[in-house]
Simulated scan of single mutants.
Amino acid sequence: MARTKSSNRWMDEHVNDPYVKQAQLDGYRSRASYKLLGINEKDKLIRSGMCVLDLGAAPGGWSQVATKLVGDKGQVIASDILPMDSMAGVTFIQGDFTEDSVFEAIMEVIDGQPIDVVISDMAPNISGVSTADQAASMYLVELALDMATQVLKPKGSFVAKVFQGEGSDEFIKTVKQHFKQVVIRKPDASRPRSREVFVVGKEFIAN
């Protein structure tokens, strides 16, 4: 089947992408690793000894970064509906975290330990229908925020991918209700033409 112009452009971009090449050299599972590295460089969200929950973790690029940052004394718990190859220092739970059984499995691993940071690089499967894709992406990030409000310790942090468009401004306003500081980041590794940005919430206000 012939590739479309847009898929050809994506393939050319991917093959020539310096972050794709760097990820191969550094042993990261995806170029997305550099997005979290860039955000953390600015915001210092993840530090040694912390406990991090990574939502929508597969293939594991963000979990790789998180586990290096938390070190031997920290912990990374990752979840995704897709399978993910095992990784030292990461406890992976496969399934939809909004389902009771998966949520309970995550809570069992947490075992009352306060979560310092919730991270999410989730994105829906793209249908090509922009309104539907935007609605699906907003639904996912709202689920991530809901999860964060349930597990974060007071003054904890949250970072999640948001696609700018219908619903994104309202979502950012909601994040501001839960965190004392909210900033929007567009790391260098995020392609300029992509509508993705990352919402960073600091100092979670626990109810």
Rank of each mutant, 00 (worst) to 15 (best):
R3G: 05
N8V: 14
W10I: 01
E13F: 13
D17P: 06
Y19N: 04
Q22H: 05
Q22R: 12
R31W: 08
S33N: 10
S33D: 10
L36K: 07
K44F: 01
R47G: 14
S48M: 14
S48R: 15
S48A: 12
C51A: 14
V52P: 00
L53K: 01
D54R: 04
A57W: 06
A57L: 04
G60T: 03
G61I: 11
D72F: 09
K73R: 14
Q75V: 15
D80Q: 03
M84R: 04
D85H: 13
D85S: 13
M87H: 05
T91H: 10
I93E: 02
I93D: 03
Q94F: 06
D96H: 13
S101W: 11
E108F: 04
V109D: 10
P114R: 01
P114A: 01
I115Y: 00
I115G: 00
D116Y: 00
D116I: 02
V118P: 09
D121P: 06
Q134G: 02
Y139W: 15
E142H: 09
L145V: 03
M147S: 07
T149K: 08
Q150F: 14
G156P: 08
S157I: 06
S157L: 12
V159K: 09
V162Y: 07
Q164A: 12
T174D: 11
H178V: 08
V182R: 02
P187V: 12
D188M: 14
R193P: 13
R193W: 12
S194G: 11
R195I: 15
V199Q: 01
G201Y: 11
K202V: 09
F204D: 00
I205M: 07
A206T: 14
N207K: 14
